[in-house]
Measured scan of single mutants.
Amino acid sequence: TGIVNVSSSLNVRSSASTSSKVIGSLSGNTKVTIVGEEGAFYKIEYKGSHGYVAAEYI
Rank of each mutant, 00 (worst) to 15 (best):
K47C: 13
I44G: 00
K21C: 12
V6R: 08
G39Y: 05
S15Q: 13
L26P: 00
S27K: 14
N29Y: 13
F41N: 03
I44P: 01
S17A: 07
K21S: 12
G36Q: 06
T1K: 09
S8L: 10
S7W: 09
G2V: 08
K21Q: 12
S20D: 03
S20F: 07
Y42S: 02
N29I: 05
N29M: 11
F41Y: 09
A55D: 02
G2I: 08
S49L: 10
V22Y: 05
S9P: 11
S15T: 10
V12L: 03
R13C: 13
S25C: 15
V12N: 00
G2Y: 09
S9Y: 13
A55Q: 13
S15M: 08
E56N: 08
K47Y: 09
T1L: 11
T30Y: 06
K21I: 11
S49N: 09
T18M: 14
K21W: 08
G28K: 14
R13E: 03
G51I: 02
N5G: 06
G36P: 02
Y57N: 08
V32E: 00
F41S: 03
S20E: 03
S19T: 14
G36K: 06
A55C: 12
K47H: 09
Y52C: 00
S15C: 13
E38H: 08
V4E: 02
S19V: 09
T33E: 07
K43A: 05
I3C: 14
V35S: 04
I58N: 02
S14I: 13
G39T: 03
A16E: 03
T30F: 06
I34A: 00
Y52M: 02
H50S: 07
V12S: 00
F41V: 02
K21Y: 08
S9K: 12
S8E: 12
T1I: 15
Y52E: 01
A40H: 09
H50Y: 15
S49W: 07
E37H: 14
V32W: 02
H50M: 09
Y52G: 00
S17F: 07
A55E: 04
E45F: 08
L26Q: 02
G48H: 06
A55V: 11
I34R: 00
S7C: 15
S25I: 15
Y52F: 10
T18D: 12
I23A: 02
G36E: 07
V35K: 05
S15I: 05
A40I: 10
G2D: 04
L10W: 03
E38K: 06
I34P: 00
G48L: 06
Y46E: 01
I34S: 00
G28L: 10
G2F: 09
K47I: 06
S14A: 15
G28R: 12
S14T: 08
A40C: 12
E45T: 08
S19Q: 11
S9D: 09
G51S: 02
S7Y: 09
K47S: 08
I3Y: 14
N5K: 11
A55H: 07
T33I: 13
A40N: 12
K43Y: 05
I58F: 05
S9G: 14
S25K: 14
I34F: 03
